[in-house]
Nucleic acid binder design. Structure first.
Lengths: 352, 352
DNA sequence: TTAAAATGCGTTATCGATAACGCAAATGAT
DNA sequence: ATCATTTGCGTTATCGATAACGCATTTTAA
């Protein structure tokens, strides 16, 4: 491995000169710079990360701005887990990461938290822009580098990267799985549950699902249920009344987010005759796996929140500390979770 | 972050003493050692990786001993890809990794390659023990640290780690998926294909599949096909004669490894009436995805060869270079691949 | 022409861990 | 009592990149 000293000797200058040229800093002549860059190219010089990391006194301060951990059924806690794992893996050398959370259901909370992060002098932000307008208005007037997870924001294209899921395709995939579960039944009445606080993301999932079903089962019809409250009891009541109104027993239920667990507990309460109804939903929520094990929930698709948080931090680090190029867009794989492979996903990932 | 200097000052000794105590090296008194260790504990000292990496002139030489990349339908090339990705990520600081391949179908080739790796003075080996006997006889008499991927070896329990898949459970999962694809048909005749060079791994998959099916579809019967040759043409001929002999058209086909692609091309040749037969198999082979896209193959389970190679190298590094504790056994998640999520698995993973 | 300013570049201390080296003091042997 | 050996510990150079500092030399201004 060639060092800066090797370069200096090869060119016939001192290491100080080489360093200044590498960093385009201080004073040097154009001629020398050309020679140095040429030799660097030839010897295939790459800086020694350890020497750099050791010397650099610069503490990078990163901040992650995401909803409170327990919101959305604990979904964001999984993101936090991934963030912390990445932070631990990078060690705390040369970088420090702080997680700031906000209330995604209260106006202004997101903006306030973002501004707080900016004022702290963060060198980079990892943001879950569940409130795109607030994010847009806050970030567009600053020049802090930022990266989005979970969803993207139109108009903020100079983000470092976006890490998320192809929602529409995940809806398609759900459709396929539902189709299989229906075992060729004709005219399936499908209950399509649009959860509270539904956003563009969730709407795209529903669209994908609907498109697949109408395409493959033209005779299927939908019972759209749009829930407004995020609380198990009211959810159950609401489902009961929806069922009563429409007077059909659904042949399959698709829930476009983690409310699927509420639906599962509802089915459980309804008794045996409801237990076989195909049920597909989103997200693995710790403590709720029982519904998958018992088979009440047939399939869960995940957004891989942990993976998103993990990758997000790594990309921030790669881009800002290591100054590497990173992918501007990264879709996490669509994993299918079911009773038989559920346990193989647990506790994978921690690197020690 | 406390440094070795902080410890030294706190105790009232020099950094040299602290260093010797940390590494149990050279001469020091028991009393001082106790004090130093106590303070280290209190201040929660962790060595600075960068300083250590910078100083240590020790080049770790690792070797990966696996079958030729193109064997098993290119399967090992994927492992190699993961190994290289990990190697690139770790940078080449303080470690060098060499991949040595052998012919898994020729006796002694594995042993020879292993011995070669040992003679090169490797500090650690990543081994795919597809020939357990040769691995056992070679490694048990040396004291080089080693780690297994793909499959484990009985009697070599002092390995650093084993990284692989829960084969039986993957068979169970295949059974579940097959069961769904059969859409409730009665008395399904299942063609169960045991591929050439079948090992304990593959037999466990078959066992899992069979157990699930006989449990959930007691009326199902199996047409066992044990193929001997690993070549597309002969495979087709063999399938033809098997079908003719048994005089049944299979209602579903399970192939316990990547020979599933041969079966797919066979079904394609047989014409329309064969195209709808549920087909489940293993492994994503580059260039063969077309059979999944077209739907000829319904589901593919993967062993995540790339992930196995990647993790293997990371664990070797963590254990030997960073001297961390690592998990003695790591099962990779069972991913389900189908037409609708196939593309979300491609090109994920490389970190830049 | 001469002082002032600008340019190009070399020198050096630093980050934290490592390990060789060697000096005292303590212990042992004769 | 004297010398040899052992024991405990401090000092120091090193790894490669970084960046402050300052010395010559050249260029510009008056």
């Amino acid at each position: 491995m060639p060092t800066i000293k090797d370069i200096a000797e090869a060119v016939g200058v001192s290491i100080g000169t080489v360093d200044r040229i590498i960093h385009k800093r201080g004073r040097y002549s154009k001629k020398t710079a050309e020679k140095v860059l040429k030799v660097m190219e030839e010897l295939n010089y790459t800086p020694n990360i350890h020497a750099r990391g050791l010397k650099s006194t610069k503490q990078f301060n990163f901040a992650a701005v995401i909803p409170h951990g327990e919101q959305d059924g604990g979904y964001w806690n999984l993101v936090i887990k991934g963030i912390n794992r990445a932070a631990a893996e990078l060690g705390s050398y040369g970088s420090h990461l702080e997680i700031l959370t906000f209330d995604r259901y209260s106006e202004g909370s997101c903006r306030k938290t973002l501004e707080e992060a900016c004022l702290k002098g963060s060198d980079g932000l990892l943001v879950a822009p569940v409130r795109p307008d607030e994010v847009r208005s806050c970030l567009s007037e600053r020049d802090i580098p930022y990266l989005f997870i979970d969803s993207d924001v139109q108009g903020l294209d100079d983000r470092i990267s976006y890490i998320g899921q192809d929602s529409y395709q995940s809806g398609i995939l759900s459709g396929k799985l539902m189709s299989l579960l229906l075992k060729g039944q004709k005219s399936p009445g499908i209950m399509l549950i649009e959860p509270p606080g539904s956003n563009a993301h969730i709407k795209r999932r529903i669209q994908g699902f609907r498109d697949y079903m109408t395409n493959m089962h033209p005779d299927s019809f939908f019972l759209d249920v749009k829930e407004e409250v995020d609380d198990e009891q009211s959810f159950h009541r609401y489902l009961d009344s929806s069922i009563k109104e429409s007077e059909v027993r659904p042949l399959g239920i698709f829930v476009a987010n983690s409310s699927v667990y509420y639906v599962a507990s509802w089915l459980e309460k309804k008794g045996e005759s409801y237990h076989g109804i195909p049920l597909i939903g989103y997200d693995l929520i710790p403590g709720r796996e029982g519904y998958i094990e018992s088979g009440l929930i047939d399939f869960i698709l995940t957004q891989q929140p942990e993976e998103q948080g993990y990758r997000g931090v790594l990309q921030l680090y790669d881009r800002l500390v290591l100054k590497k190029e990173v992918q501007k867009e990264l879709f996490v794989p669509l994993n299918i979770i079911t009773r038989e492979n559920l346990h193989t996903f647990e506790n994978y990932n921690q690197r020690n």
